[in-house]
Design a binder for these strands. Structure first.
Lengths: 152, 152
DNA sequence: TTAAATTAAATTGCATACAATCTAATTATT
DNA sequence: AATAATTAGATTGTATGCAATTTAATTTAA
């Protein structure tokens, strides 16, 4: 006795291994890296890929709507969309109703790319190295968190 | 009958909402954003913070070891460590044993910063907006994934 | 031993991210 | 209507990330 165990607050709370943010950050990066070889084949980066995924849903979208969906702002999206336009995958046009709004739609070539992209989820499944059950649990928790974190 | 339900592979697999990678990517970014106001107070970015967390553990580390711990390469670490050195938080020195190796250690000022940083985990706890139970589950799965994903 | 192979950092180039600011268009106010 | 406030994108500046290359030091092999 006499020894007072150092509180977790004082000594352990700053250890990397005790952070939840770190594995989140690290796994996220590593997963993106796993996508790279497959995305290289169709000439997209990861961010361009998730942008295309929303565009492939078919509805014409404004930059704003795209940003709300992907949690990205115009500082990221504008240059990225310009690149996708240069590749001939999307069309950017000012809305007639409101000239401030830029609407994004897939070109024929952009829609065509979807066919090639279809193989990617299959190829990448299992990239997390955990059981299907864990993947489902993980997705459920992350979706919940994403919802709550962006509301507050 | 006669209707064949379109297979998930063909039509649904490319929907953003069906990806596990996306909420992972999005939550990770949002969490880093949550840290920002607190990290601003002590003048660190998120990446600088996790680097300092490893350095605060006390052991002198090479750039390589730091990179293995954080899954970052010299292309990211070198300029970041130069910045931390300019702020007076760390010292970079060539190893005597092997001149190729650069060893990193906290300066007195860098160690001092730890005291201020101690409040951050407390302030940030709950930032995911999910229950403690879910946080524990999440961490368990992510740690497992991080281990497996970086082995293969 | 001396050349070849390997290794650790540093450097270069490209693509995000995001805060902050700017500009033009639209809406709300007086 | 004229001005003020707001809004959507674009722009600027800073900080990552990472692949690929380079450089210098060390180790391996011939």
């Amino acid at each position: 006795m006499g020894f007072k165990k150092k509180s977790l607050d004082e000594d352990e709370c700053l250890r990397l291994d005790n952070q939840i943010c770190f594995p989140l950050y690290a796994v996220s990066k590593e997963v993106v890296r796993k996508y790279k070889p497959f995305l290289d084949e169709i000439g997209l980066t990861y961010t361009q890929y998730i942008v295309m995924m929303v565009i492939w849903e078919g509805k014409k979208l404004s930059v704003q709507e795209l940003g709300e969906r992907l949690y990205l702002d115009s500082g990221t999206l504008t240059p990225l969309l310009v690149k996708l336009e240069k590749k001939g995958l999307v069309e950017r046009s000012r809305s007639h109703k409101d000239e401030r709004v830029v609407e994004i739609a897939a070109t024929e070539k952009g829609t065509g790319l979807k066919v090639q992209a279809r193989e990617i989820p299959k190829k990448i499944s299992g990239c997390l190295g955990i059981s299907v059950k864990d993947v489902i649990t993980l997705k459920k928790i992350l979706d919940k968190s994403l919802k709550n974190i962006t509301e507050s």
